[in-house]
């Protein structure tokens, strides 16, 4: 098991968001967390990154317990995280953003370089010297993903990557995610865009009110209109 979230509870100050949540992710698997906004999707990813304090439960990653580690140690262990707000460094150029994310993996050859990023995401290539803060939303999203890939992660957490993007960019993103799976990377998405999510994922989870409501294959969920209506639609 690549990532194993074992009955965690978490929240901000006295406010609780996650209640006893369980979730698992295998190597080379693309999995999506679905749920309405406010359900706890982002908080789940942030808790894995130790950016939200855990109040109960354990998190295991590649056979090691990581819930007592600090954010940078988790990142160095091979966990890549792309936040919902993208959080690129606005005053740095595109190339500098990529350099800030560069990190060599332990004991294997790096699979990511600027050249490879630009090949896969050709839209970024001519923007190398541009200040990242001046990029469009879609370009910033590409950059945020690329910056994290430069750290050669073995697992990628993507928080609402399709939010606010044009359909063509969403399609590009889907292609990218499939490419990553081809290389054995595990990807955990948090999404509201059900169609995009189910199109790229192997497995799907639904969370609502901070707890897991469904876990299964994307195909199963595709067939369960009742579940979608209950937890995702109005």
């Amino acid at each position: 098991m690549m990532l194993s979230i074992r009955s965690i509870s978490a929240g901000y100050g006295p406010a609780r968001v996650l209640f006893d949540l369980n979730l698992e992710l295998r190597a080379g698997e693309i999995s999506v967390i679905l749920g309405r906004n406010g359900a706890g999707k982002s908080t789940t990813l942030k808790t894995v990154m130790a950016m939200v304090p855990l109040s109960g439960g354990q998190i295991w990653f590649s056979g090691k317990r990581i819930d007592q580690r600090s954010t940078w140690e988790i990142a160095r262990a091979g966990m890549g995280y792309v936040p919902e707000e993208r959080r690129i460094f606005p005053d740095l150029s595109v190339l500098e953003n990529l350099e800030a994310g560069r990190r060599l993996p332990h004991g294997r050859a790096p699979s990511w370089s600027v050249a490879r990023i630009f090949k896969l995401l050709p839209a970024l290539a001519p923007l190398g010297e541009r200040r990242a803060g001046t990029l469009s939303g879609g370009e910033q999203q590409m950059l945020a993903v690329a910056r994290t890939l430069m750290g050669n992660p073995s697992c990628l957490l993507l928080d609402e990557p399709s939010e606010g993007l044009a359909p063509a960019v969403v399609e590009l993103l889907a292609t990218l995610v499939r490419t990553l799976r081809g290389e054995g990377m595990a990807v955990l998405l948090a999404e509201q865009n059900v169609r995009f999510a189910l199109a790229v994922s192997d497995t799907a989870h639904i969370i609502e009110k901070g707890g897991l409501r469904f876990s299964g294959t994307a195909r199963q969920l595709q067939e369960r209109a009742d579940l979608r209506a209950e937890y995702l639609a109005l």
Partner: peptide
């Protein structure tokens, strides 16, 4: 509102494509 297709689209994200 539940019966309104515009509302369902807004919530299921299909309006984006």
């Amino acid at each position: 509102v539940r019966a309104d297709p515009r509302a369902q689209r807004a919530y299921l994200g299909d309006n984006r494509d």
